[in-house]
Design a protein around this nucleic acid. Sequence first.
RNA 1: GGAGGGGUAGCGAAGCGGCCGUAACGCGCUCGACUCGAAAUCGAGUUAUCGGUGAGUAACCGGUACGUGGGUUCGAAUCCCACCCCCUCCGCCA
Length: 425
Amino acid sequence: MIDLKLAQKQPEVVEKALKERHSKLDMREFRALDERRRALLAEVEALKGRRNAASDEVAAIKRAGGDASDRFAALGELSERIKKLDAEVAEVKAEEEAWLLSVPNLPDASVPQGADEKENVEIARWGTPRAFDFPPEEHGELGTRLGGLDFARAAKLTGSRFVVERGWAARLERALVNFFLDQHTKREGYIEIAPPYMVNRVTMTGTGQLPKFEEDLFKVRDWDYYLIPTAEVPLTNLHAGETLDEAELPLAYCAATPCFRSEAGSAGKDTRGIIRMHQFTKVEMVRFAHPDDSMNQLELMTGHARHLLELLELPYRVITLCTGDLGFSAAKTYDVEVWLPSQNTYREISSCSNCTDFQARRANIRFKPRGGKAAWAHTLNGSGLPTGRTMAAILENGQQKDGSVVLPKALVPYMDGVEVIEPAR
RNA sequence: GGAGGGGUAGCGAAGCGGCCGUAACGCGCUCGACUCGAAAUCGAGUUAUCGGUGAGUAACCGGUACGUGGGUUCGAAUCCCACCCCCUCCGCCA
């Protein structure tokens, strides 16, 4: 949520941000609601002031042993008017709140201007895509041929956009989770969390998935619970409603969880392989930072995601999302894209964002300097990394002419010494 | 699922329908006194949020908040209803 005061006092700043993001929201709607709310509030507060004063008088009379019942009729009428006005204020306030909740975060000044993903800016590249002397096989086919991925049975069990992993693939999944978590917890100082995979509506609202993106979520029937689309949701909300000690910052968490996404609106996209599933496993990094330090923290955290790909010997590039392509909660986002030989292109494998105070304001996450006043903390999140897309990249980049796959050396200890996945015979 | 107890400031906790929300009391925290310094002791201070006036995140005036949402009442932390969470016990269960 953006700052109410900012919208009231510097509407031009919000207006500019909305324009940069190519949003259709109109500040005039907000202005009308805000003015109406304040007018109603002034009116009802004056009436309440009168009621309070009168109540004090009644109390004084009663204490003195007098009879104040002749005042009750007029006061009752006053209370009725207050009740009606209160209801009106609540209605307008709810509308105003809904409007504010639908406003995306303000892009950071360093974010490049642009309308859509075509105007994202590449800022770094690592590794060289391998030259193949045979046509590289797509990872879904490859994984199926090697007996690790089973889309047919997943479709039988559930439906499309699910996969069954068998043998080496299931083992590789577990190896990747352990490898990622070990890097984060042992080398980079993240605290490992095992959170709930279902959260309530308030939690989903805190990180910005609700109310706007309900159709992207799986909802639990008869409960106000949702399956998490990413561990960002429970991790960021860990400190919802809390005031952190400034000395604790930056605070870093990581978690490996399944992620559930309805993928509404992406019908027909990425239908092959395991790039876009309804369920996938991801290790997520979340950081709570001091406002003055959060942009440094974004660089640091993006570095953690990049380092994993370097250890896995997977070529990648990093892009800065332009204003038009930024996610709802983010002020600045780096996407890390891994090389996929079968598609002859880089595909997103990690998205690292600084949400500044946008989620903190929704979820009420603050920090307090010693002796100072509490302020909104900044929250950041990034993938580090999803197992599925990483597995896709490992399979495609490591494939050999003989149909086998050579695994990255860093994973061998996690695979009980297995270096190559051989075709079954 | 059943029975009972509870939810009030950073924490613990008191609170006969009006004199209790700048919320008793205790702890903590901040500042000061004492001290070479510290501890102990003593003194002072210490809720958040919204609206108005205002250049002001200063000051002043007012509103709101006792888990959440309703209700009763001239007036609710206090009475009634529903829901949420925590604790104890019972049942069921991986």
